[in-house]
Simulated assay, not measured.
Amino acid sequence: MTNAAPTSHAPLHIAITTGEPAGVGPELTVLAMAAAAAHWPDARFTVLGDVGLLEERAKAVGVDWAALPADRVTAEHRPLGVPSQAGKLDVANGRYVLGLLDAAIDGALAGTYDAIVTAPLQKSTINDAGVPFTGHTEYLAERTHTPQVVMMLAGTGERPLRVALATTHLALKDVPAALTIDGLLGTLRIVHRDLRRHLGLPAPRILVTGLNPHAGENGYLGREEIDVIAPALKRANDEGIDARGPYPADTLFQPRYLSDADCVLAMFHDQGLPVLKYATFGEGINVTLGLPIIRTSVDHGTALDLAGTGRADGGSLIAAIDAAVSMARHRRAI
């Protein structure tokens, strides 16, 4: 493996972290890699994880790991802290999971990888191992020294539903104080920029929700729309960003509004994501916008009850890889 940045003629190089070893991540990775040659002819993949674990989970889904084409799929062996049993969390593997993510981030920052795709991890295992950890999004921001990032989940298809978040993993009581004019403006700038450079959308249209029921009803149900969201939208519009709103969240998610929209910006996690996941679960993806690297992921958790059974659906991981490859193509073409 070279640390030099890939040339424009080289295959795209994508890293995949296999996530929580007791969850479905390893077997979903195997399923995706079995389809790699057919899906992504211009890419090669490095899978970060314990090779013995990958071989074991490959059997559960009927894939011969050793038979995968070595010129397309390679494994960077990173040994487990302790042997892992499907469905059984072990705190001794918490640092192993974080080590996979660190290796992927370091490789992407060095130019070895054009993008990274992350299988789901278990936050509690990492925290129980003594490492404060809020989630992939916040950790990626910290490790890449990025002052502001944006979580965006998306469906698939020609006009996919995309939902970005102004705040992420916060208690609901903390959301109003976390919303500021400068913060929302920064979020809109990131969404606008990355929809253009990663997805090739020349003039993204962003619809913005209010925070309160009925978008505050002119202040009767809260003033955040008047004091924070509307001023942020005005400043964004002055910069040439096509951001509209604030709209009541309970009526925004319908075709007559979304048909011409490229992304919805919701104010908090459970305002926008239930709708997105209802519409796309199993095929949706998670994208971290604002980073100096490309990162995509699945839209689901570790599914401990399905791990090792061979019944897990690899659709979301395949969609995440597909998005990472597409985004890397757009970035390389710039």
Rank of each mutant, 00 (worst) to 15 (best):
I241R: 07
G222A: 01
V61P: 04
G284N: 05
G216P: 05
T144M: 02
R331Y: 09
L170N: 08
N212T: 08
D270K: 07
R143P: 02
Y257M: 12
N93W: 01
T146A: 01
G23D: 02
L306R: 12
V51W: 15
P204L: 02
V82N: 12
A37C: 13
L161T: 10
T2K: 14
T156E: 11
R197K: 14
A115F: 04
T309V: 09
H330Y: 13
D262K: 05
R235V: 06
K277V: 01
I293Y: 03
V149Y: 01
A266F: 00
V51S: 14
R44V: 10
D182P: 10
A171H: 02
A279D: 13
R223Y: 13
L265H: 08
I116A: 12
A10N: 15
T7C: 08
D174Y: 12
E56Y: 14
A22H: 01
R72C: 11
I285S: 00
S259G: 15
G157F: 03
D242M: 10
T18Y: 10
F281G: 07
D128F: 12
R311G: 15
G308V: 09
P246F: 10
A307V: 11
A215M: 06
G99Q: 03
R44C: 07
A67S: 12
Q148C: 15
K88W: 15
L165Q: 05
P274H: 10
E20Q: 06
A67E: 10
V163S: 05
Y139D: 13
A319R: 02
Y139N: 11
D102C: 08
F268S: 09
I16M: 09
A35I: 13
A307C: 12
R329T: 10
A328E: 02
I105G: 00
A215T: 05
T156D: 09
R189D: 09
R329V: 08
W65I: 11
K123G: 06
L53N: 03
V117W: 03
I226H: 07
G222Q: 01
P26S: 05
T29R: 00
